[in-house]
Amino acid sequence: MKLKKLLGLVLSGVLIISSVGCSSSKEQSKDDKKIVVGCNLVPGEELLKAVKPLIEAEGYELEVKVFNDYVLPNTALNDGELDANLFQHKPFLEKTNEEKGYDLVAVEPLYVCPITLYSDKRDSLEDLQDGDTIALTNDPSNESRSLRLLESAGLIKIKEGELVTPNDIIENPKNLRFVEAEASLLPSILKDVEAAFINTNFAVAAGINANEQGILIAPTDNTYANIIASRKGDEESEKIQVLKKALTSDEARDFINNEYKGTIIPIF
């Protein structure tokens, strides 16, 4: 009998602990008023700081985590370390989902960062010489964007295909050479090549001026608009809707226009 009573007490204790644990977990979820967003330094962090008061006015705390590459923000979002991220366009997100098996979704397009070919050694596209070297980012979607832009300018011809690399070039009258590197490294590589395609966020952060150093600027294309991304199923949550409302506000639009003066173009 004593043994049965002892076992009964132990089981009762386990049930109580289990019940308390479940109750605590639900309460934490219900009271979670922090929105954690991953981004790059420019314009992500600057823009999020600008709209932080709007998010706080809705009763939420904003935590911004800055990443210096294009891989970790999606990994962190997929793993639940972030509620959302802001650094990529939809084609990049779709390629990441395909390669990594993630289930991340585009919530809202915000702004366009026209991809630009920069040079400190050539004053114009026409000044590119035979055998000049051009640096490209090594991520598939932005590398393809860059090569297609060169093709539209008449410098090369490329095979058909959604994603292309320098190996797909079939005509290259100027014998241009290409090197690939991580996007964050391209500003430092610019001095070692004749020209480099540098994503706007890294160019602005490095003080590289499109008006002074840009020799080829892509036309505005909303296909490549930077987006808010979240995990699938979270896009209609209150957190994400509060974030979306702040980032598509008049204050957000005015900040982008005043701070970046056409280098970054809001589309909301």
Results as ranks from 00 to 15, higher is better:
99 E>L: 05
228 I>N: 04
77 L>N: 09
104 L>S: 10
155 L>C: 03
78 N>V: 01
185 L>M: 13
226 N>T: 15
188 S>A: 15
32 D>F: 13
76 A>L: 07
175 N>C: 02
115 I>L: 12
238 E>A: 12
156 I>T: 02
159 K>Y: 00
156 I>R: 06
124 S>F: 07
151 E>M: 04
111 Y>L: 15
17 I>G: 00
261 K>G: 01
70 Y>L: 13
110 L>Q: 01
18 S>Q: 05
80 G>Q: 09
114 P>D: 10
101 G>V: 11
250 D>C: 02
60 Y>E: 07
58 E>P: 08
174 K>E: 06
230 S>E: 04
31 D>Q: 15
21 G>N: 02
103 D>M: 08
200 T>W: 00
248 T>S: 10
190 L>C: 02
70 Y>D: 08
2 K>A: 12
152 S>P: 00
132 D>T: 08
130 D>C: 03
63 E>K: 15
259 E>A: 11
50 A>R: 14
70 Y>F: 13
173 P>M: 03
197 F>D: 01
95 K>I: 05
148 R>L: 02
20 V>L: 12
132 D>F: 04
185 L>T: 11
213 Q>S: 06
165 T>R: 05
74 N>C: 03
217 I>S: 04
18 S>E: 03
49 K>T: 14
263 T>L: 08
115 I>V: 10
180 E>V: 04
136 L>T: 03
255 F>S: 05
97 N>V: 04
261 K>Y: 03
147 L>I: 08
203 A>Q: 05
221 D>V: 01
191 K>I: 14
96 T>V: 15
224 Y>N: 00
264 I>D: 04
243 L>H: 12
251 E>Y: 01
110 L>P: 05
84 A>L: 11
116 T>V: 07
32 D>V: 07
227 I>N: 06
77 L>A: 12
197 F>C: 04
2 K>R: 14
154 G>F: 03
214 G>Q: 01
210 A>L: 03
156 I>D: 05
140 P>C: 03
188 S>M: 13
220 T>M: 13
173 P>S: 04
174 K>L: 14
163 L>Q: 03
252 A>T: 04
201 N>C: 13
230 S>I: 02
135 A>M: 08
225 A>M: 02
95 K>Y: 14
176 L>F: 10
265 I>W: 10
161 G>A: 03
122 R>T: 06
40 N>T: 14
160 E>W: 02
68 N>K: 14
181 A>T: 06
212 E>G: 00
208 I>D: 07
137 T>A: 11
222 N>Q: 11
112 V>K: 06
65 K>D: 10
193 V>N: 02
6 L>S: 13
261 K>C: 02
79 D>R: 08
220 T>E: 15
126 E>Y: 05
127 D>S: 15
122 R>A: 11
